[in-house]
Simulated assay, not measured.
Amino acid sequence: MQIFQVDAFTAELFKGNPAAVMVLDNWLDEQLMQHIAMENNLSETAFVKPRENQDGWDIRWFTPTHEVSFCGHATLASAHILNTEYQAPMPLRLFGEVGELRVELHQAHETAPSYLLDFPNVSYEFIDSLPAEIAASFGATPIAIFKSYENYFVELEDEAAVRNFEPDFEALAKLGTDGVIVTGRSKEFDFVSRYFLPGGGIDEDPVTGSIHTTLAPYWAKKLNETELEAHQASKRGGNLTCHVRDDRVHIVGCATTFMRGRLCL
């Protein structure tokens, strides 16, 4: 069985966010897919298969510990593999737990093409305080706190506060599969962010497409802009161009293939 590893949201190997991708005829046993993701030990492993009516592709995402409802960088990685390895006609329609995700080729390139990801605009709600499990050891002063899906978002004073933030992983792990994002205004970019999910087996995710379906609308409203340049300030780092379009968020990013392999099951 073939498996691929892709560096997403980067045109250079060893940067961006690595994801594994398997293209299947039918779903494997769910426990087996979870074991494969655990063995890969990447933030996400994506599994895709043709829909029964051949109208697009079904997609599922697994961290090393559990299945998730939405993952942006592994969707980008999957589209890249379908385009470059399987010559699937573009644009692509992928269907996951969050609904339809559309991907089209934005700019062709021999090694690192860029893609436009058409994702849902994921709403958020402001909350008064951080969960008790992490509030005491958070180590930074929030400007605003809001929540979306399984994630807590915390705006900090500026980019320096985001880059210098020191997470208490033991405390954050108490949130289980709820993640924590810190974000701030940037001089070079419109905004920066970092994402932590130690309870889900990911201390810090390098570049996360899904959180930008909330971050981009938040900063678009705050800055009165609809097109934003974002940077996820992890050690590997990655850049995302975001366009807020009513109920959708368009994200442009590159992808490059790192590895082709075969599983022995």
Rank of each mutant, 00 (worst) to 15 (best):
M90W: 02
H231N: 11
S210M: 03
A19Q: 01
A233I: 03
N151D: 12
M38Q: 13
E104R: 15
F191W: 13
I181S: 09
E225G: 06
F191V: 14
E110M: 15
D118E: 14
L215K: 10
G96E: 00
A20C: 14
I145S: 13
R248F: 02
F9T: 14
E30R: 15
E150C: 12
L223G: 06
P142Q: 06
P91C: 06
T257V: 09
P217E: 00
H212M: 01
P206R: 05
A135T: 04
E104C: 11
S123K: 14
D25A: 14
E39F: 08
F126N: 07
Q54T: 09
N26S: 08
G99I: 10
L116Q: 10
F47T: 04
A112M: 02
G56S: 11
L156N: 09
R60E: 07
H250V: 02
N164H: 05
I134F: 14
A161G: 00
E166T: 10
E188M: 11
D158Q: 02
N224M: 11
Q5H: 14
E229I: 00
V6A: 07
H243C: 10
E52A: 15
Q31L: 13
A77N: 07
A74Q: 00
H35Y: 08
Y218H: 14
D190P: 06
T226S: 11
R236Y: 09
D158N: 15
N83H: 15
L105G: 10
A77M: 02
L265V: 13
D158I: 00
F4L: 12
P217H: 10
T177P: 05
F196R: 01
L130S: 01
L240S: 01
E170G: 07
D158R: 00
Y115C: 09
V122R: 02
V68A: 05
L28Q: 15
S137I: 01
K235S: 01
A161H: 00
A132W: 09
A8K: 05
T63M: 10
F153D: 03
R245G: 00
G179P: 00
A144P: 02
